[in-house]
Write a protein that binds this DNA or RNA. Structure first.
Length: 466
RNA sequence: GGUGCCAUCGCCAAGUGGUAAGGCCGCAGCCUGCAAAGCUGCUAUCCCCAGUUCAAAUCUGGGUGGCACCUCCA
């Protein structure tokens, strides 16, 4: 398996610390608001990575954190006159539900900042003891970036030359402008956590380093985890700082491989609150089947920037439809899991830095070929079994085609409408039987008005929501 | 200003040295009462210029045009 390492900027063969095992830590959401399409993309990318690693036989330990200590959370709680826990609990639950709708598998470990404070204290103390951190007069603890000769090696940035000026300009008590808070002292009585360094709250970057040490890191390994992932924007400063803390506090680097997923833009514009075009996942899920969103968001390479627009989403749906139409042709048949050449090829392209486009091309070719054969007379028993086994593999590795095909095509249609459609189809079939095609075509138009396509097959008339 | 990424058919999008995958749209056809679905066939020489090479979309140099990050951010 090969993965593009966004720090070394090259594709590297994946060689885990322990043979047959893989550990993966991904930066998860800060739960102060609804998840947007960017969160979805990131979660989906690492979901795919975990699935492909597992398909390659790795015993994967997958951790994705929940940041539940944050200024924005505290602010929101104050605004809405709610407790921190109410806010984080609500958005964590919403996040979980939305992830489930997208078919994202739950991480093996989902650490929360509030449950990892001890690990953070340990890390801070180590950094203070080793001279990599200092306490200011205000009671804040900062990481001393000048004490780390490898600082900025991750993001390959050049140290700012204007440190002196900035120190004069700001009233900050930081030694270097790049220094970042490990612990922020809070004296105003707002939400605080007790610590050996006084009351306050931890710095964001520290959370991930601490959680990795607590849950994944092992003694005598050169790296704490095999793979560390997150959105492309996290490389600097978040991951740079994480790497610095871990490097200076422990005797290992934080990660061997770095994976960063590309950003989601909406209709060509960056998603942001200030632009007002934030596309919340919950809104998208009201309109589209979660699996369609999964298929669409996963449909182009994880590293490229993704331009979300509804036209492309419709195109993606059409492509996913093809999987389900063939599944309808095979509905009700049983199969054994047999290994096919298709599956080998599929895993091969996915193992090359998650080449989803090649994978989809293979799937389309497999579908066309199966349809072609099924269109010819005969029972095609072997082909059907093989195709079903292929579909089972696609479900497992890609999470596509996991639903009942009939239900999939009825997404978003309420029971009353279904009944009406059913009645109209009955009437149309009667008209057809009487060769009253004028009436049957008129009835078909009525059905079409519901946004529903119908198709006559040897097994009867079926309908699909367009 | 610093750092980095990208530029392939109308649209989406693979391919990092060996002569352009796949999907959508379009056209022609098979099937169908007609459709829909399915199937078949057709449709690009890879932003520009120069270079390296037997061979380049793929490497090098120079342009042009997009984009991202630079301590809120998946």
């Amino acid at each position: 398996m090969h993965l593009y390492d966004s720090v070394q900027k090259t594709k590297r063969k994946f060689e885990p610390l322990e043979e047959g095992k893989a550990s993966l830590y991904v930066c998860g959401p800060t739960v102060y608001d609804d998840a947007h399409l960017g969160h979805a993309k990131s979660a989906l990318v690492f979901d795919l990575l975990v699935r492909v690693l597992r398909a390659n036989g790795y015993d994967v330990t997958y951790a994705r954190n929940i940041t539940d200590i944050d200024d924005k959370i505290i602010k929101k709680a104050a605004e809405q006159n709610k407790s921190i826990k109410e806010i984080t609990g609500f958005y964590t639950e919403a996040f979980h539900q939305e992830m489930q709708a997208l078919g994202v598998i739950r991480p093996d470990i989902e650490p929360k900042a509030t449950e990892s404070l001890e690990a953070m204290f340990t890390l801070i103390q180590k950094l203070i003891d080793s001279g990599h951190a200092y306490t200011t007069q205000e009671g804040d603890v900062y990481f001393d970036t000048s004490s780390d000769s490898e600082y900025l090696s991750l993001s390959k940035r050049v140290q700012e030359e204007d440190d002196k000026q900035q120190r004069v300009a700001s009233s900050s008590l930081k030694k270097n402008s790049a220094d970042f808070a490990l612990w922020k002292s809070v004296q105003d009585g707002s939400v605080t956590f007790e610590s050996p360094f006084g009351a306050g709250r931890p710095g964001w970057h520290l959370e991930c380093s601490a959680m990795i040490e607590k849950h994944l890191a092992k003694e005598h390994q050169p790296y704490a985890v095999d793979i560390h992932g997150g959105g492309a924007d996290l490389l600097f400063p978040h991951h740079e700082n994480e790497a610095a803390q871990t490097r200076c506090a422990t005797n290992h680097a934080i990660a061997n491989y770095w994976i960063h997923n590309g950003f989601v833009n909406i209709e060509g514009e960056k998603m942001s609150k200030s632009l007002g075009n934030s596309f919340f996942l919950k809104d998208a899920l009201k309109e589209y089947d979660g699996e369609v969103l999964r298929f669409y968001l996963l449909g182009s390479h994880y590293r490229s920037n993704f331009n979300f627009n509804t036209d492309d989403l419709q195109v993606a749906k059409k492509r996913l439809d093809k999987i389900y139409r063939l599944k309808k042709r095979l509905f009700g048949l049983s199969h054994n899991f047999e290994k096919t050449e298709f599956q080998t090829k599929l895993l091969e392209v996915l193992s090359d830095d998650l080449n989803i486009s090649s994978a989809l091309a293979l799937i389309d070719e497999m579908i066309s070929s199966a349809n072609e054969t099924l269109d010819t007379p005969g029972k095609h028993k072997a082909l059907k079994k093989e195709t079903l086994a292929n579909f089972a593999y696609i479900e497992k590795v890609l999470g596509f085609g996991v639903k009942n095909p009939y239900e999939y095509f009825q997404h978003g249609v309420d029971p009353q409408t279904k009944e009406k459609i059913f009645d109209l189809i009955q009437k149309r079939n009667e008209a057809k039987k009487a060769k009253d095609f004028a009436s049957s075509d008129k009835l078909r138009d009525e059905i079409l008005a519901f946004g529903v396509n119908i198709m006559d097959t040897p097994d009867g008339t079926f309908w699909e929501k367009i």
